[in-house]
Design a protein around this nucleic acid. Structure first.
Length: 591
DNA sequence: ATAGGGTTAG
C-alpha cells in the first residue's frame, strides 16, 4: 500500500472500500459502480482511477461523475469534473452536460452559461441536454422570463431541436409561477408537433392545477389521458390528484381515488400515503392520520421521516406537545434520523404553544447535533420570540441568521413586520417598510395587510389609507383581508361611511366580502350604535350561508339586552348561529 | 453503450 492510499484511508475513513478497490484489479465496469453507495466510495474510486496508467476511458469517468451527481453531491461532482479536465481526460457533451447541470442545481446558472461558452471554444456542440439543464437552472433561480427567452430563442433560431424533456422543463417552470394557461398552451403545441406530451407533461400540469386549487381543471386533464389511453397515469399522477382533493377536505373522493388507482394496478407508494397523512395532520385529524399509517404498514410500506414529520405537525397543532415529543423520540428508535424539517416542526409546535423556553432548548439540541438551522428554523424562532413579546431576542436571532449566511425571505420579512406591529412598534415597522423601498419584498399583498392592520389598530387610519392607495398604484390587487383590515380600521375610528363605501366596492372589484367582512362591519355598526344597515347585513349573511362568530354574537346579545336593538332580530340571529355555539349556556335562555 | 424531466415541510 503506498503512502497516498494509506492517507486516503485515514482521510476518508473507509478502509473496507479502499482495500476492496486495491485488491480488485482496478476494473471500473458496471458491477463495480453498483457497489458505490456513498460519496466516499465514489471519491476513493476516482482517486484510484486517476492513478491508473493508461487512464480509464472518458466513459468510465463520466459514469462515475453521473453517479456522484445522482447522489446530489453537485459540488463534489463539479470538483471531479475539474480534476478530470486537469488530468487531461477529454471533455465531451456528456460530461459537459453533467457539469452544467451541477452548476445550475447549485444556483450557479451563471457558471453554467460560462461552461456553455467553453463548449463553443472546445468545439463541443451544445445539445438539448445542455440547454434543458440551463433552462432548469434559470427556473430554479426564479428567472422565468430568462428561461422563456432562452427557450423561444432556441426554437426560433433552430439552435437545437426541442424534445419532450425540454418542453417539460419549460412547462415545469411556467407551472412554478402558476402560469397554467401558458403551460397548457405549450402542451397543446406539443400535440401539434411530433414531440408528443407524455405522462411527465400531464402530471406536471395536473399537479400545478391542484396546487392552485383548480381541481376541476386538473380532473379534466386527467380524464383526457384516461380517455386517450395512449398515455397511462402513474403513481405520481394519482398522488397529485389525491393531494389536491385532500387540500379541499374532499376525503371521500380522495379515498375513492386511492381505490381507483389500486384497481388500475398502480400501488400507492410511501409518498402517496404521506400526502394523506399530511393532509389529515394539517387538519388536526391525527387519529385518521394514524389509521392511514397503519394501512400503509399493512401494505408493506415503511413510514419514513416525512410521515413522522407530518404526525409531529398534527400533534403540535392540537397542542399535544407531550405526544409530539413522544413521536419525535420514537423516530430514532425506528432507525430514522430526525432532520432539520423534523426539528422545525417541533420548534413550531413549542412556539405556537408559547413554550419558547423549550423551543430554545430544542434549537440548541439541533445545532449541537450538527444540524444547520435554515431559513424556516429562524423564521419559526423569530416568530416565537415576537409572540411572547421578546422582540429583543427576535432581533438578535435575526442578526444571527444573517451571520450564519441564511438569507431572510419573504416570510421573515412578514414575521418581522407583524412582530413589530404586535409589540407596539408600528413606527419601527413602517420605517423598515420604507427602508425596503420598491423591493420585491414590498410587492407582497400580505405585507400591506400586516401594515394596514398594524396602523389601523393604533388608530392611524390616515396612514392606512395612504398604504392602501400605494398598493393600488403599484398595481397590486387587494384581497379580502386587505379590505377587511381597512374596513376594520375605519370602523374603529367611527368612520362608518368610509367603511360602507369600501364594503360596497368589494363586490364590484371582483373580491366579494367573506364572513369576516360582515362580522367586522357589524361590530363596527353596533359599537357605534348605528343600526340602519344591520338587519340587511344579517340577511345578506344568511343568503350567503355565512355564520356569526362568538364575539359578534355576544355583542348582539348585549345590545338586545340593553334594549338598543329590537327583539325581532333574534329570529334572524338564530339562523346565523353555528351549531358549535348553540350549546353555549348564555344562549339557552334567550329563545 | 457515458447526460436530462413530474408528487410532500414555515
Amino acid at each position: 500500500m503506498n503512502l497516498t492510499n494509506s492517507l486516503l484511508i485515514k482521510l476518508r475513513g473507509n478502509s473496507i472500500t479502499t482495500s476492496f478497490l486495491l485488491h480488485s484489479n482496478f476494473s471500473t465496469n458496471r458491477s463495480m459502480l453498483h457497489k458505490i453507495t456513498n460519496l466516499n466510495h465514489a471519491l476513493n474510486l476516482f482517486d484510484e482511477m486517476s492513478q491508473r496508467r493508461p487512464l480509464p476511458s472518458v466513459v468510465k469517468f463520466t459514469q462515475l461523475l453521473h453517479l456522484v451527481t445522482k447522489m446530489k453531491h453537485f459540488s463534489s461532482s463539479l470538483h471531479l469534473f475539474n480534476q478530470m479536465c486537469s488530468l487531461g481526460v477529454p471533455v465531451n457533451e456528456y460530461s459537459m452536460s453533467i457539469a452544467i447541470k451541477c452548476c445550475c442545481q447549485l444556483h450557479r446558472t451563471k457558471d453554467g452559461f460560462a461552461l456553455l461558452g467553453s463548449c463553443f471554444r472546445r468545439a463541443i456542440p451544445p445539445n438539448v441536454y445542455i440547454f434543458s439543464a440551463l433552462i432548469d437552472g434559470l427556473v430554479l433561480e426564479d428567472r422565468i422570463l430568462d428561461a422563456e427567452m432562452l427557450f423561444k430563442k432556441l426554437i426560433k433560431q433552430k439552435l437545437c431541436e426541442p424534445n419532450v424533456v425540454m418542453y417539460n422543463t419549460m412547462i415545469k417552470g411556467l407551472c412554478k409561477f402558476s402560469n397554467n394557461v401558458t403551460a397548457l398552451a405549450l402542451l397543446r403545441l406539443m400535440e401539434q408537433t411530433n414531440c408528443k406530451p407524455d405522462i411527465f407533461t400531464y402530471s406536471t400540469i395536473i399537479d400545478s392545477l391542484c396546487k392552485d386549487k383548480l381541481i376541476d381543471d386538473a380532473f379534466k386533464l386527467f380524464k383526457e389521458i384516461v380517455c386517450n389511453k395512449s398515455i397511462l397515469p402513474d403513481v405520481i399522477t394519482y398522488t397529485s390528484l389525491i393531494c389536491g382533493l385532500c387540500k379541499f377536505g374532499h376525503w371521500d373522493e380522495a379515498s375513492k381515488m386511492l381505490k381507483q388507482m389500486e384497481d388500475e394496478n398502480i400501488s400507492p407508494n410511501v409518498h402517496t400515503f404521506n400526502v394523506l397523512v399530511d393532509a389529515f395532520c394539517k387538519e388536526g385529524k391525527v387519529e385518521e392520520a394514524e389509521a392511514i399509517i397503519n394501512i400503509m404498514i399493512d401494505r408493506g410500506k415503511v413510514p419514513n421521516i416525512v410521515t413522522y414529520n407530518s404526525l409531529i405537525d398534527g400533534y403540535c397543532l392540537r397542542g399535544e406537545m407531550i405526544k409530539a415529543r413522544e413521536i419525535f423520540y420514537s423516530i430514532t428508535l425506528r432507525g430514522l434520523v430526525p432532520g432539520v424539517v423534523t426539528y422545525n416542526s417541533l420548534l413550531n409546535g413549542y412556539c405556537k404553544n408559547l413554550n419558547i423556553e423549550k423551543a430554545v432548548q430544542m434549537f440548541h439540541e439541533m445545532t449541537g447535533k450538527g444540524l444547520k438551522p435554515n431559513v424556516v428554523t429562524y423564521n419559526t424562532m423569530i416568530q416565537g420570540f415576537f409572540r411572547v413579546g421578546r422582540f429583543v431576542d427576535a432581533r438578535k436571532l435575526f442578526d444571527e441568521m444573517h451571520a450564519q449566511g441564511q438569507n431572510p425571505d419573504q416570510y421573515t420579512y412578514r414575521i418581522v413586520l407583524e412582530g413589530l406591529c404586535n409589540n407596539h412598534q408600528v413606527e419601527e415597522a413602517l420605517s423598515l417598510f420604507h427602508l425596503m423601498g420598491d423591493s420585491k419584498l414590498n410587492s407582497d399583498i400580505v405585507v400591506y395587510n400586516i401594515l394596514i392592520n398594524g396602523v389601523g389598530k393604533c388608530g392611524k387610519v390616515d396612514i392606512a389609507r395612504v398604504l392602501f392607495q400605494g398598493l393600488i398604484d403599484k398595481g397590486l390587487q387587494p384581497d379580502v383581508r386587505t379590505y377587511n383590515v381597512m374596513i376594520s380600521g375605519f370602523c374603529r375610528e367611527g368612520q362608518l361611511g368610509e367603511a360602507k363605501l369600501l364594503f360596497l366596492k368589494m363586490e364590484e372589484s371582483g373580491c366579494p366580502p367573506d364572513d369576516v367582512t360582515y362580522r367586522v362591519l357589524l361590530q363596527g355598526y353596533l359599537k357605534n350604535r348605528h343600526y340602519d344597515d344591520v338587519e340587511m347585513l344579517l340577511q345578506e349573511m344568511d343568503d350567503r350561508g355565512y355564520s356569526l362568530d362568538a364575539s359578534t354574537l355576544s355583542l348582539f346579545i348585549d345590545h338586545i339586552a340593553a334594549g338598543l336593538l329590537d327583539r325581532s332580530m333574534l329570529k334572524l340571529l338564530g339562523k346565523l348561529v353555528p351549531k358549535e355555539l348553540l350549546n353555549d349556556p348564555r344562549l339557552c335562555d334567550w329563545e
